[in-house]
Amino acid sequence: MPLIDPVTMSSTTASPKASSPIEVLPKDISRIVSQAHPALLLAAYYMRFPSFVVDPVSTLLSSLLPLAVIQIGYTVICLPPAGTSTKATKKPKPGASKKGLETPTSGPLTAFIALTLTILSSPILFAIQILFGAPLTTHLPHTILSSLHIALLTIFPLVYVHGTDAGKWREIASFYSPIDEVFGGAVGCLLGAWMGAVPIPLDWDREWQKWPVTIVTGAYMGYVAGILVGAWLLKGKRIELD
């Protein structure tokens, strides 16, 4: 994979091959786990949903660890850790791999670093929710926990595969990364959380309308949809914002 020059990277239309999509590791176990991962997440979410509606805070809190385990397992088994690339290993170029993390890195260690960064970055997601109109004076644990869940779904796999390369992260922040199952999942998760706000104002008086049930539900469903779309439908394409 060619190194991205920060200047040319931004004018990616001129150099569309600036970065390429992430491939699942070419092992049978990786393929199987990557297929099972969305199904497992949805099933687990479905099972926890009733208690989530009854007591959002403690359910979100108690499911953080299982979620982290699922995400760590998925990334370590299926995805190339930062600094390695399925393609880069095939045709290495001199001086090409100057990623933020040194190569080659072990999966678990990368996962640990990614986990730390994920937790550190969740305040940004928290702030975004507040700016979109989440309650400021009440429900703070709810919002913090929903940020952590969303961070584990989006930021964690992204850090795991891309490390802390500034150019790459600018590409991700501008939603211009080539679509693959990691980036697709992240975009889907954020879009899902965004759309999760839609039913909140309705006066149906349902328990599940309370904060942040719909947001987190939208995030999970969007994440799964994003993974599927990213892995199959739109792989390698880019989001144009013209």
Partner: peptide, 8 residues
């Protein structure tokens, strides 16, 4: 903001 991040 996302669009701005794409500026040269």
């Amino acid at each position: 903001a996302v669009k701005s991040l794409r500026l040269e």
